[in-house]
């Protein structure tokens, strides 16, 4: 019983972190209609910024969020404006050119990190990295709990932004039907550029939250890119609520799978769920949530 509860707690906490990575991806996939294979690399970028801020300036990773978000937002805006957007109207043999562009961008980001920081593993040691709190015999990792709470706050904020503001509504309209949105007078070009920045900014927050829990090296990204698109497909394209549940489901499935089936197949569990949803349940959780 204790094992079960502890597994549940670990799964939910890690799921919260996955969710925030997934929300960024779901926005990008929903609005731009591309698979952002550079998502993990953007996360890595934000982790390095956080690491530099902590190591050289002594800025706490949680405060660093306020710095990484704008930096990453502007970098992503630049990527989107100068590298992805120009491909939209272009005639090419394969419609997947934008996806391949994100592969190229990801490669450049990884290699830049490798040139600047070398392949060494980096980590931050703050006063709370080794802390945890307890409820009876069940332990809650402190940085994971903080990450979970911040994820929830950010998700609620994003949800309000998407439902209550004009820009947010435009983002949602573009995600649902680009041509209809354009007919309604929405500048879909601007919205797509903005969305890439917004999605990446969420990713940046996730990076700052992840660093105290995990460690950092240039190739850290792909692991999380895969998790992000599993969540996106699970939750349904462009659905924030779906992504939250998608993240939690993935976190729980992985943790329970690892506890009760096999630790070695931990990463395979998510992929199998993903493939099954993709093939047999297209649309994912969005079918139920509709948002």
């Amino acid at each position: 019983m204790e094992t079960f509860v502890q597994t549940l707690v670990s799964g939910i906490l890690i799921g919260g972190l996955y969710a925030i990575i997934g929300i960024g991806m779901t926005l990008i996939m929903g609005v731009l209609n591309i698979i952002n294979l550079a998502h993990g690399q953007i996360l890595m970028l934000s982790m390095y910024i956080t690491w530099v801020l902590w190591t050289y300036f002594g800025i706490d990773p949680y405060i660093a969020i306020f710095i990484t978000i704008p930096i990453v937002f502007f970098i992503a805006e630049g990527i989107s404006k100068f590298l992805l957007h120009p491909l939209m109207g272009k005639d090419s043999i394969l419609p997947e050119n934008q996806v391949l562009m994100t592969v190229g961008i990801g490669m450049v980001l990884v290699e830049l990190a490798r040139v600047i920081f070398s392949s060494d593993y980096k980590s931050v040691q703050t006063s709370y990295t080794n802390k945890s709190w307890y409820l009876g015999t069940i332990s809650f990792n402190t940085p994971l709990t903080i990450a979970f709470i911040i994820s929830i706050i950010m998700t609620v904020g994003l949800f309000l932004f998407l439902t209550k503001t004009d820009t947010g509504r435009s983002v949602r309209a573009t995600a649902q039907d680009k041509s209809a949105a354009a007919l309604m007078g929405i500048s879909t070009g601007k919205i797509t550029v903005l969305t890439y920045g917004l999605g990446s900014a969420l990713d940046a927050a996730a990076g700052s939250l992840l660093l105290p829990i995990y460690y950092l090296y240039p190739d850290v990204g792909p692991l999380f890119t895969v998790k992000a698109f599993v969540i996106t497909i699970l939750g349904g394209l462009g659905s924030t609520v779906g992504a939250i549940f998608g993240g939690l489901i993935l976190g729980l499935a992985e943790t329970f799978g690892a506890t009760y089936i096999s630790m070695g197949y931990r990463d395979a569990i998510g992929l199998i769920i993903f493939l099954l949803v993709l093939v047999f349940f297209p649309g994912g959780l969005k079918r139920f949530t509709k948002v």
């Binding site: 204790e2 992985e254 943790t255 630790m263």
Partner: peptide
């Protein structure tokens, strides 16, 4: 066994508990 680079080892460690 586990894969190098695992984020969360708790499922493994719970076996010890």
């Amino acid at each position: 066994s586990y894969t190098e680079g695992t984020v969360d080892f708790k499922p493994l460690l719970l076996k010890v508990k």
